[in-house]
Design a protein around this nucleic acid. Sequence first.
DNA 1: GTCTATAATATGATAGAC
DNA 2: GTCTATCATATTATAGAC
Lengths: 219, 219
Amino acid sequence: MLTKPRSSIAIEPEAIDGRGLILDTAARLFREDGYAATSLRDIAAECGMKAGSLYYHFASKDEIIGEVLRIGVERVSDHVRRAVLALPPNADARTLLHTAVRAHLSALLELHDYTSANVRIFGQVPAPVREAHIATRDAYERFWTELLKRCAKQAGWNPRRDLALTRLFLINALNGTLEWFSDGRATVDQITHELTELMLDGLSPRQHDSKAQKRRVRI
Amino acid sequence: MLTKPRSSIAIEPEAIDGRGLILDTAARLFREDGYAATSLRDIAAECGMKAGSLYYHFASKDEIIGEVLRIGVERVSDHVRRAVLALPPNADARTLLHTAVRAHLSALLELHDYTSANVRIFGQVPAPVREAHIATRDAYERFWTELLKRCAKQAGWNPRRDLALTRLFLINALNGTLEWFSDGRATVDQITHELTELMLDGLSPRQHDSKAQKRRVRI
DNA sequence: GTCTATAATATGATAGAC
DNA sequence: GTCTATCATATTATAGAC
């Protein structure tokens, strides 16, 4: 048996046993190559196994992919919730949003193959698998709904904005980074800063914003 | 030979001949089922043909998918450019952005199976096909880069914003609508309005914006 | 827990008749 | 331009030895 294959973007902490190794490997390959292009033989080979051996641990390919999808949401959800909970209870909306955006991007782009696999292959998996997974995704999206509500209340956000559509735009912008992040266009911190500022302040010039004016002169 | 199968979301204008019928059908099936789940037998059957007959018109599945991708960008690009060109030369930034967003969403969600197929399957096709198509996508993205520059100049947009990242966030938010639009959450006009306003004004309360204050009281 | 061997099926592609 | 028939290959999944 080979040692655990290193993730190309981060080290997954567990995966000592067969089942964990298979899942780690599947997540990495699904992220890299997509769902259909990753066969059970590919996964087994990377684990130093033969394809038939996978069926001792899982009943089907769909069971493997279902687990990868579930863990992907679990990882990013835990990471973002923990980051937000670590803030002081009276944190302002800008800090809350910045922290959540930073944590989501970090899980997606730096930490977890499971999360990037989820985003990458969600639209490719067989409909029954996708439908069974939707409830898990919904739970994480509800966290964002509550976060945006908290921010809107704390900072008195423009009540004309539709927070449900805003959440969809934001999550699509966040997950979309997976498609172009590797081009080296920006760091996670730069993306976090730019997206947070854009969401909060928009593109229009800020009226009577003397602070922004002063900052600009200094650069 | 069957008559042209109706698109489920719109009528594609051409497709009288065999080649056009095959492409129309392929675009629709790719959009509905994804790349790997759509076999040449499926496409042929929907055209009232047998799989072998496709090879009179195309050399391979990759050639079909390459054409579908190309036409998808061509359609949305033509539609958006035409809409923007129809505006008066001195149109303000809000009108420019609103018009381009509206046209892109309309092509993606209402008009063209080719465009929605492109967005849906781009991440699924074999790497050589994807790489050969990138230049076509880049050309359309350059249009958006120029549009945002024009807007920034016209309206004096906040110079602290990074327009390259802004374009990526915006296009990801636009294309991401494909995943949830059918849930009936909002109309194309509502999505257009909300995304445009969010991009321009952001979530924060507008300082000294008496107009917004007055509107709010009225609701 | 992993192996070998294989069943059952589906796919992209080709050859040649009509 | 479309058909039938078929090749070569790949896939998920199972059965039984070790």
